[in-house]
Structure formats: C-alpha cells, structure tokens
Design a protein around this nucleic acid. Sequence first.
DNA 1: AACCTTTATAGTCACAGTGACTATAAAGGA
DNA 2: TCCTTTATAGTCACTGTGACTATAAAGGTT
Lengths: 243, 243
Amino acid sequence: MSAAPEGYDPHAFEPFAVTVDLAVFTVRDSRLHVLLVERGEEPYKGHWALPGGFLLPRESAGDAARRELAEETGLSDDTVSGLHLEQLRTYSEPDRDPRMRVVSVAHTALVPDLPEPRGGGDAAGARWWDAARTGTLAFDHDRILADARDRVGAKLEYTCLATAFCPPHFTLGELQQVYETVWGVVLDRPNFRRKVLATPGFVQPAEGAPRRTGGRGKPAALYRAGDATALHPPLLRPEGRHA
Amino acid sequence: MSAAPEGYDPHAFEPFAVTVDLAVFTVRDSRLHVLLVERGEEPYKGHWALPGGFLLPRESAGDAARRELAEETGLSDDTVSGLHLEQLRTYSEPDRDPRMRVVSVAHTALVPDLPEPRGGGDAAGARWWDAARTGTLAFDHDRILADARDRVGAKLEYTCLATAFCPPHFTLGELQQVYETVWGVVLDRPNFRRKVLATPGFVQPAEGAPRRTGGRGKPAALYRAGDATALHPPLLRPEGRHA
DNA sequence: AACCTTTATAGTCACAGTGACTATAAAGGA
DNA sequence: TCCTTTATAGTCACTGTGACTATAAAGGTT
C-alpha cells in the first residue's frame, strides 16, 4: 500500500542485504573491456565477478556505486566524479547469492582507456577483460554484464554517451571507434562525420589544442564533448538489428 | 568486491527493508491516469501514494510487483499476467521513509481502460487520478511518478508499447489517442496511419472482428497488437522535444 | 626529390521516410 | 437530401541517409 510498512518491526524478518554491482566499461585496443575482480572466498572462489559491495547505513545506491568505483579503479574522488555512472537495474532473485538474501542495484560506468588498476585495497586483483570473453562469472553477473552491454549499445543510438569513453580531447576517428567497437560494426567515415557534426552540441572543436602528430596519415582535428545529452536525430545502428 | 558479503552476519546491521512501488498507468478520457491509494496511517496519513508493498521472503521484485498489481487492481492473476509490467528504477535515499531504511524497486505497469478498482482488501481506497493533477504524493512518489511518465513517453518512440494501453481489438484512431495523450501533442492522422502500418509487426488487422458502429463517422477497421516489440524506424515525437 | 601509403575531410547522388496537405469514402443526424 | 464527422487514400517537397568519389595532408620509401 505504500513504500513503507505499516507497523513493521525492522528486526522481525530475516533482513535483506542491499549491494551495488558495477559494470565498468572502457574501449581498449578496439575491444570493449570490462573491469572484473577475482573472488578470494567461497562461494565462487577463484571465479571473476563484477566489482561491488554493500550500501553503508546512510548511503544511497548511487553514492555506494561511486565510492566502489573509486575504490576499484584506484582513481581519486575528483576524477571519478567526472565519469559517467548510471543505474542499470536491480537484481533480486531469492537465490542469486547462496548464502543469504541479497538485492543488488547494478550500475553501469563508462571510462576512457585507463591504466591497469593498481590501487590499494580492493583494487588488487582487479583486471580489465575483453567483455566478450570473460568466461563464466560469479553469481548472476553474466546476466548483469549482458544487460549492461545491451543498454550501452542502445544508449549510443539516442544519447551523446559515446564521448564518455573518450579522453577530454579526441578525434572523430576515435569517437567512431567507440561506436564500431560497442556495436561490432564498421561505419562509413564520411557519413559518420556528417551525422556527428550535424547534431548540435554533440561535439565542439577544441580550438587551441595541438593536433596529435606522429601518426600515419593527415592529423585529425580534435574535439571535446558538447553540452547536449540527447541525440536528434538519433544515430541508428546499421541494419536496424538490435539485440 | 562482489554481490555478496564476505563473512557478513545478516543480523549485525540495522536491516534494509525492500519494497516495490507501482506506477500503474491507463489512458482514460484522453488523459493519462495513474492508480493511487490513500494512506490510512502516519506518516503522510491522508496523502495519496503509489501502490506498493514488501517483498516476501522468497519473492523477486518482479514477482512482488505482479502480486501487488493484482491486489490493487482487483483483477485475476490470469488477467494481470497479460499486462505490461517492467522495472523502472530503484530508489534508495536513506531518508526517503522517515521510519526506517527502505529501498524501493519501482515498476511501471500499463493497462487498458479499466473500471474503478473495487476489489477487496488493498484495493479499497484505490482510485484513478489524472497523472498531471495528483497533488503532492507521499514519500518520494512524486519523483517516481515523474520518472515513470518520462520513461513511458520515451518508450513509445522506439517500442510497440502503446498497444499495452489498448484493449485486445482497437482502431488506429484509438492507438493514435494513446500517443497524443502520453506525449501531449496532436498528430496528423494520415501520417500516423502510414507510419504504424509501415512498421512490420506493430499491429495486424483483426479480420473477423465486427467493426464498432454507432459512432459518428465511418467505422474504423480493427487491429490487434502484432508480435514486434521494437519499432524500426522509431516513431519520434514532433519537434524533438524530450523531457 | 618523387612517389606511395595512410588517414582526414569534402562533396555527390539516388532513395527512403516525413510533415503538410488535399481528396475521397462511409457512417449518422438534421 | 444534405451536412457533419470520422476513416482512409494519395500527393509533394524536403530532410536525412547509405554508398560512393574526390581531394588534402601527413609519414615513409626509393
């Protein structure tokens, strides 16, 4: 009848534990990568799992997710606060953890290509994995990872999210790489340019920035993310093939 | 580090309560309506709230949402199992319920125009409200309702969800009414027909069904929902104005 | 230096989808 | 018999797109 219990005794039930799990993605070597941690305890000892952890007593799921993201990547709070982090969905099957009732609020984070995580504490035992070749993960994390990949692919179509995978300055070729990697397709370069540049607020020229030279061909112009969040019109996947 | 605690004692913490809240929408009299219940207890006594309730010990959030939907609408389990129900997002601010820590997994349900809920038990005190004129709801339910409306409006663009608001047989005019009501716009009728009929699997003609007569003009052909779930190409809102 | 390869960028063209609009068909009511 | 109302069919100009060709600017090779 409401979000809240009527005459509910907090200690009468077996309590639910509430956690967050994180699907942290990056694009590295033209492959979508995901951050995983190796479990040191039963159950699923030795298996790899999505990073995550418990909500503190006065912490929202979003706050817990950002805290875990900082811990697992070894990045500073300031750096982490600039990253894209959003709630994915909540997983609450009664037997998803064999030990007790755990409800997990899964989140998706997108980060630019970062060095291998070598922070202290929780970040030890964390590694980037090719998201398509993780093997079987602990708990229901295979499903969470699949849902997160689907969501990211879909959001690239109608949001400016792709820039979240890029460093502060990037070329249109790098942005196109993000799309091609996440979608697993090859896009026509002139057409991609035309669509990105025709969408106001998607990217803006980074005037002062020096072009990166030393590559093979003509140096590309640098851009930075614009202030738009939605894409109009959307940048649809070829063939209309969705999951 | 994982979905599950390491050496966690289930009774050591103050427990979290986990609930579901439901934003149940219907289109009635060319207005979007939402099902609300009046609170009989403090806090927020006398305020209206989204229907909802606790997860049972061995129940997933989706199962709890479908159970609550049946209880609050007074419909049979069979009827309810055919309705559209999907997870919206999870609300976990520490103080969203003043009595204790409650994490709520909000869901959105779409139903055809139903009679006023007059089931037993929880359905007493339930009423359809114009979704734009609910006044201030209990807890954080104003925000949940706003998020749910945004989600429904966005999903009409790229899914076949609009048929979930319609009875088993419907006219294209009724389907257009759904779009116009949810989006709050007026659409061109010939263009709407063309787009809907051009999308394979969106609707299919209901051949045998007798046309409804007694209206003012030419009787419209009846259709039923097709088997497609996604819309290609999407049916975009006019003006590109999103929330 | 002349040339090739590579990558970036500019432009062309036919076609599909769309918004705005007009025209016709089929019902009930005055 | 009109007239109104709603459904359905069709037209037309414009936009965005996919496929493609052309040019520019870098490094490397001989």
